[in-house]
Amino acid sequence: MTTATATAPKGLEAGAPRRSLASKIVDRIGSGAVQVIMVLLGLFWLVPTLGLLVVSMRTNQVNSAEGWWTIFTKPAELTIQNYANLLGSGFTASFWNTVLITVPTTVLVIGIAAMAAYAFAWMDFPGRDTSFLIVVGLLIVPIQIALIPVASLYGGAGIFGSIPGVVLFHVAFGLPFAIFLLRNFFVGIPSSLLEAARMDGASEWKIFASVVFPLGKPAIASLGIFQFLWVWNDMLIALVFADTGNQPMTKYLQSQMRQFGSNVDILSSGAFMSLIIPLVLFFAFQRYFVQGMMSGSVK
């Protein structure tokens, strides 16, 4: 199924009728133009991030005097001083807060959603289809709707501003997509495997933990990466629910935006630090990333 599409274009071109020399020349020129356009477009997408990297490796003094592209003539101006300065600032704490928010959220979403997805996929209970349609509907609920009500709930419960409060909010809003993705994957598990286990008298929990969950690994990997990136990159929930002591990187950096000009050193190096882990994850697991996106492009 996958091999046919990968090789098809080449194979078909070979089988096409013989074409005139003129049309071949036209094709060659056309393909040259395409190459040039694509190189330019690629640069267009790559260069802004490259600019951030260079800016983050030059002093404010140099950055305020000249554009980052002058680095090609003056490579000696590169320094890691801005990154060294980050270590002593509030940024370090915010980095750890991001980790403390992101990791538990990802684990909880996977666990809770997998359980629910298993129930939706393989159990009979009244109202199953309707409640799953509600989950589908909740996929695109804007989080703005919950900011005010949850803030007042948290105020009452005394967890406003705390990391658990932020985590729980993320988990709840991560669940619809997670349940949707996993349920659709679990449905495809061959029923013979489950029925054999049920015949053997295995408990539902045992079937879930030792049959469904292991078989669901590809979908769980996709979900895990997505969930991790969403939470890692979130700013809005952090702005509302994390107080200064518990703020993640995004909120810390946002608080430095007001004096953009004089804070370029912190902002550029901090922003680059914040995107290193997502980029590593992205390059390492891009196939899971794309797969998750395909199955959940409604969010």
Binding site: L41, W45, L46, T49, L275, P278, Q286, F289, V290
Partner: peptide
């Protein structure tokens, strides 16, 4: 990969960029 990469980056970082 190049064009898709910004998807992994936070909108905050994209904003600074």
């Amino acid at each position: 990969l190049i064009v898709f990469m910004p998807m992994a980056v936070s909108l905050m970082a994209a904003g600074v960029i």
